[in-house]
Write a protein that binds this DNA or RNA. Structure first.
Lengths: 220, 220
DNA sequence: TTTATTATCGAACACTCGTTCGAAAGACGG
DNA sequence: CCGTCTTTCGAACGAGTGTTCGATAATAAA
């Protein structure tokens, strides 16, 4: 009994989550019926409930898997990197890279943030707050180091998330820049806006860095 | 029969729209029932249908009124202003000012963009495209004039909308900066990011401009 | 007061929803 | 083959949905 690969159960659950995420992303959580999910996954309506207890838990599982991976990948990527500016650049790259490569899940995560309630909502929200705090502290650090351009840190933080999380509303992988281009554009746009011209000096050092990142694939 | 004020019918319709927008903003369009609207407006369930033909048209009316005002106010504000940078600044101010003062409607407009279908969806989307094109052309113009910082115009456009439209996810009028502060922060953040340090020169001239804008009130 | 028009309502219809439950089929070592 | 545990399913339930319809009440015009 090799522990190397996922069990049959896990594989199927993951398949259900990924398929459901696509339907939720397309039609929205509330106007997707469990019968839609049943049709998309080719499972019987009642058969679905073997894998979760309710439609709301299905949404939670999608968001939790997705968000945990973003944060996990981010932690790994930032480990050992000290310079706050470089840390932020890596975080943005990671976020956008994962977003583009898992657009369905990330759209559900961004758009259906308030479609859960009670304990499930709280769990997701705690992770979200952690992630936001990570960015906000990073910005504070950068502002302290480089004496930023007088932009409110809270406004800057959520503006950055706005730039990044809005992309599900317009980004088309076939018609737009690729992830590396998107990432470098948004990074430059934000960073230069946040602390002025100083960024440009260090910019050349980063070229070529996106290459290995672009291969960071979905866990699914 | 004075034409100066709205008819009784219009007044009540507007009241229904505003109340409904608050409920939609709170619970989301799809999980709000017509019975919720009935309760909130203190009208009977069937009585509502005297003012619109369907729940979807109710959503449309909210979005259409709201969006038309934003665009209308914007046009008035930009009339006679030639400098594209100043035009952009005014547009951002107008957008954020209206957003903060009509948070419910703007949240519905930003969040329930895909909750309509057919002709109604198309109508809203046409206005949206107009507005987006206005911004995108403005940015192109600015980039041509000032030889921008090499940021893709499409990415910049939607990043700006991301910054502005994301605020319903975090902005709290009681805990955060006021509209003028929010506006100037976001303007500086974006403009400096988009075309580099050059913005700062002209910045001082603009102070005090927000005063009269802050009194632009909801049509409702 | 009589009319005509505008505005409101209770009751009901047809339908879809998420979820449950008991049974059956599949997988698999003994 | 057995027995056991895992996985799947059809059928149904009760609750809630958006919308309609005919009748009433309010308002204004005649």
């Amino acid at each position: 009994m090799p522990s190397e690969s996922q069990s049959k159960y896990d594989q199927k659950l993951v398949h259900v989550l990924k398929t459901s995420a696509a339907v939720f992303a397309d039609k929205g959580y509330h106007s997707t019926s469990m019968r839609d999910i049943s049709r998309a996954t080719k499972m019987s309506l009642s058969g679905l409930y073997y894998y979760f207890d309710s439609k709301e838990e299905l949404l939670f599982l999608i968001q939790d898997y997705c968000f945990s991976t973003v944060i996990g990948d981010c932690r790994k990527l930032l480990a050992g990197v000290d310079d706050p500016v470089r840390r932020l650049k890596l975080l943005i790259e990671n976020h956008l890279n994962y977003f583009v490569q898992n657009m369905n899940e990330m759209k559900v995560l961004s758009h259906e943030a308030n479609s859960m309630s009670g304990e499930l909502f709280k769990k997701i929200n705690n992770k979200k707050r952690q992630y936001v705090d990570l960015v906000m502290n990073l910005l504070r650090e950068i502002a302290a180091d480089s004496g930023a351009g007088g932009v409110d840190v809270r406004v800057a933080t959520f503006s950055l998330f706005g730039m990044m999380n809005w992309i599900y509303n317009w980004y088309s992988p076939s018609k737009d820049l690729d992830v590396a281009g998107l990432s470098s554009n948004i990074t430059r746009l934000f960073l230069r806006g946040f602390l002025g011209e100083k960024v440009v000096e260090a910019e050349r050092l980063e070229t070529g860095r996106e290459a290995h990142l672009a291969r960071t694939v979905s866990i699914w």
